[in-house]
């Protein structure tokens, strides 16, 4: 992994993600309370916390899947609080989902193709892509990056769970991402697949930062340089992986809580 300074230089100045006073209500339930969070370009951060701490809701506020009830979201300096998800994606934001959200009645190739096309032009084109179209090369590259070459033409609904998780990652890497939100990418993966996942994450180009939600500490703490701890919809600690691991309060609330 390259140094933070190197990656910051590659990605320019300012924060990649900046949340100010973000809250999210679901009816009377307060899922997020007054979250203020900055992530630098190229920074790789884990968001940890027990179930129901508000981690996924935080990602949904950033992507616009469920916009915040109050507060502002900035992406590379631009206020995107009111933008629909697809507009944020076109600005270089990507995400994966905790429960695979794929296109089960299309093939692996078509799934990746849609992701590549979604952030390019001619989304509405009525003309089929030719094999020589550069986009087809990107599709093939992404498929081989996540080791799905053997099932390229299979329907996604027929894939094994682990393969669907890999495809989730491929969809998030399509186009030219600047920042990616990974929501429990290792959930349900075999040890081998986890190793592949760590390899993919650490091999990402230096300018691509990410936030990763992960219950598997072995994965999470190996691929990040900073950690944000959440509890009951609030941030209660930020620090380096070593600081967080050593913190007695964290150990009591989270690591000792049987979720590790």
């Amino acid at each position: 992994m390259s140094s933070i300074a190197e990656r910051m230089a590659a990605a320019g100045t300012g924060n990649a993600i900046e949340l100010r006073g973000v809250s999210r209500m679901f009816g009377a339930l307060r899922a997020l309370t007054d979250i203020t969070l900055s992530v630098r370009p190229g920074e790789r951060r884990a968001v940890l916390g027990s179930n129901g701490a508000g981690k996924t809701t935080l990602l949904n506020c950033v992507t616009g899947d469920f916009p915040p009830t109050s507060g502002t979201v900035r992406f590379f300096g631009e206020d995107v609080t009111l933008l629909p998800p697809h507009e944020r994606i076109r600005r270089g934001l990507r995400r994966t989902y905790q429960i695979s959200l794929l296109f089960p009645r299309l093939t692996v190739r078509d799934n990746v193709y849609l992701a590549c096309r979604g952030v390019s032009r001619s989304r509405f084109s009525l003309i089929r892509a030719r094999a020589s179209d550069p986009i087809m090369q990107s599709v093939a590259d992404l498929i081989s990056l996540v080791h799905l070459e053997d099932v390229t033409d299979r329907l996604v609904g027929e894939l094994a769970h682990g393969q669907q998780r890999q495809l989730e990652i491929a969809l998030a890497l399509a186009g030219a991402p600047r920042f990616i939100l990974f929501d429990e990418p290792a959930a349900g993966l075999s040890p081998n697949e986890r190793r592949d996942l760590v390899a993919i994450l650490t091999a990402l180009p230096a300018h691509i930062g990410y936030i990763i939600i992960e219950h598997d500490m072995d994965v999470a703490l190996r691929v990040v340089e900073s950690v944000t701890m959440m509890h009951n919809g609030r941030i209660f600690k930020e620090g380096s992986p070593q600081e967080i691991e050593a913190d007695p309060e964290v150990q009591q609330l989270y690591l000792g809580g049987g979720h590790g």
């Binding site: 992507t63 616009g64 899947d65 629909p84 998800p85 697809h86 994606i89 076109r90 990507r94 995400r95 989902y97 959200l101 794929l102 296109f103 089960p104 009645r105 299309l106 849609l114 992701a115 979604g118 952030v119 989304r123 969809l171 399509a174 186009g175």
Partner: peptide, 13 residues
């Protein structure tokens, strides 16, 4: 048809 939410999340209106 398969997944409108994911379509938004890969850049489609």
């Amino acid at each position: 048809r398969d997944n409108p939410r994911r379509m938004e999340a890969i850049g489609y209106n």
